[in-house]
């Protein structure tokens, strides 16, 4: 199963069609080539370096909460 991670856009670099996003407090460069009209403050789903689409802040918060819960579970699971 593949996750796309919600991230907030902190800067848009229009000349390169890229953006800087904040992911759990860490800045990362991503491509905006596949989404239209994304702007600073928007939340986007990020997968392998690309923004897939914009989502609401509420939706981003819900998904991030589940991902955080997943991380807590992973630290105690029985993965071989």
């Amino acid at each position: 199963m593949c996750l796309a991670i919600p991230a907030r856009i902190t800067a848009v670099h229009s000349t390169s069609d890229t953006a800087t996003v904040a992911l759990d407090g860490v800045s990362k460069e991503i491509s905006l080539a596949l989404v239209e009209d994304a702007k600073v403050g928007d939340y986007v789903l990020v997968h392998v370096g690309y923004a897939l689409n914009t989502i609401s802040e509420e939706e981003a918060a819900r998904t991030l909460a589940m991902i955080a819960e997943m991380g807590a579970l992973a630290s105690t699971d029985d993965t071989p």
Partner: peptide, 9 residues
């Protein structure tokens, strides 16, 4: 390192 047990959430 894929999260193969993530569905337990």
């Amino acid at each position: 390192t894929r999260p193969v047990h993530a569905a337990s959430v």
